[in-house]
Amino acid sequence: MTGHPAPAPSLLGVFAHPDDESLLAGGVLARHAAAGAHTAVVTATWAPDSHRAPELAEALGILGAGTPRMLGYADARVPGSAPGRARLLDAPLDEVVARLVRHVRELRADVVVTHDGYGQLTGHPDHVRTHRATLLAVHAAGLEHLHPEAGEPWQPGALYLATHPHSGVGELGALLRGVGKTVLSVPDEHVTATVDVRPWLDRKWSAIAAHRSEAKRERPLPGLLSRLPAEDRDRILATEWYTRLTPRPAPGREDALTA
């Protein structure tokens, strides 16, 4: 007798800027939503009344990831992104963690996805800060005496870091170097999930293109991709790479530390 396939796990993405969700995990978000899983995205920077908020809403609608959840901190490099609000880099880390814990507990997602430790290829400081805050929040969300005001404890089963291995940089690295950007990648053995997202590529690209203000600019990745032939662009976007971390304690008991 053939068993039914396991349902896709619910998914929460935590990213620094509007467009990061589409560029880094758009295929996975669309894939899980298409399988009937609940998906959502928290965005750390830009104000909910900024011009990028409706672009984010459109992108999330395309990906099936609900409505925007924007923390509203200012982008490190764009002070006008959240007038009167602290930059994400300047906000107390515990404050950011507590706000993320609330979202994790409210959504009760099986899997959380965020930036890797480098802050992706370009090492943007907002990406790095979001990575660090998310790691702390995923751990804290499962502990009842941490941030009790943020709701009942919930421990996601896995945390995945969106990343790029050395072997996967290729044409994308050349694009970024061409506009003077840093290219940071991880050893191939750090990648634990390589996801072919070609079946969801149309949705992923439509979501990226929904960030019109970035697609019109010269140096941001949506703009670089929009000027490529579709075949080249699709080849760059067809694969997503992730590193899995397991925040839940492993089952069983040990009497020594093991690697």
Score class of each variant (00 low, 15 high):
residue 223 G to A: 09
residue 48 P to I: 00
residue 86 A to S: 15
residue 74 A to R: 15
residue 69 R to C: 00
residue 65 A to M: 10
residue 62 I to K: 08
residue 39 T to Q: 04
residue 50 S to F: 07
residue 235 R to L: 09
residue 52 R to K: 13
residue 144 E to A: 15
residue 238 A to Y: 07
residue 64 G to Y: 07
residue 39 T to M: 03
residue 31 R to D: 07
residue 64 G to N: 08
residue 46 W to H: 15
residue 157 G to N: 08
residue 178 G to F: 02
residue 55 E to V: 07
residue 85 R to N: 09
residue 162 A to F: 11
residue 166 H to T: 14
residue 66 G to H: 05
residue 185 S to H: 11
residue 85 R to K: 10
residue 255 D to H: 13
residue 234 D to A: 12
residue 58 E to H: 09
residue 124 H to T: 12
residue 113 V to W: 07
residue 76 A to C: 11
residue 218 E to L: 10
residue 196 D to R: 10
residue 238 A to C: 09
residue 223 G to R: 11
residue 181 K to V: 00
residue 250 A to N: 03
residue 4 H to L: 14
residue 165 P to H: 07
residue 14 V to W: 03
residue 34 A to K: 05
residue 89 L to H: 06
residue 170 G to L: 05
residue 96 V to S: 09
residue 216 K to Q: 15
residue 111 V to H: 08
residue 94 D to I: 09
residue 136 L to T: 07
residue 52 R to T: 14
residue 196 D to G: 06
residue 183 V to P: 07
residue 203 R to K: 13
residue 102 R to W: 11
residue 167 S to I: 03
residue 110 D to I: 02
residue 169 V to Y: 01
residue 62 I to N: 07
residue 57 A to Q: 10
residue 200 W to V: 02
residue 192 T to F: 10
residue 207 A to V: 02
residue 8 A to S: 12
residue 203 R to T: 00
residue 228 L to R: 04
residue 176 L to H: 05
residue 67 T to H: 11
residue 242 Y to H: 13
residue 106 E to K: 03
residue 115 H to M: 10
residue 116 D to Y: 11
residue 154 W to H: 14
residue 217 R to L: 15
residue 247 P to G: 11
residue 157 G to C: 04
residue 232 D to E: 15
residue 200 W to T: 01
residue 29 L to G: 02
residue 134 T to M: 08
residue 111 V to N: 04
residue 102 R to E: 15
residue 157 G to Y: 07
residue 70 M to T: 01
residue 59 A to V: 01
residue 182 T to V: 14
residue 207 A to M: 03
residue 114 T to C: 07
residue 47 A to W: 03
residue 99 R to S: 02
residue 185 S to M: 05
residue 106 E to W: 02
residue 130 T to I: 09
residue 238 A to N: 09
residue 37 A to V: 03
residue 151 G to V: 03
residue 74 A to K: 10
residue 251 P to F: 05
residue 164 H to S: 13
residue 179 V to N: 10
residue 109 A to Q: 13
residue 9 P to C: 00
residue 169 V to I: 10
residue 91 A to I: 02
residue 162 A to C: 14
residue 203 R to A: 15
residue 71 L to R: 07
residue 210 A to H: 05
residue 211 H to L: 06
residue 98 A to D: 10
residue 132 R to F: 03
residue 157 G to P: 05
residue 91 A to T: 04
residue 214 E to M: 14
residue 149 E to C: 01
residue 107 L to V: 01
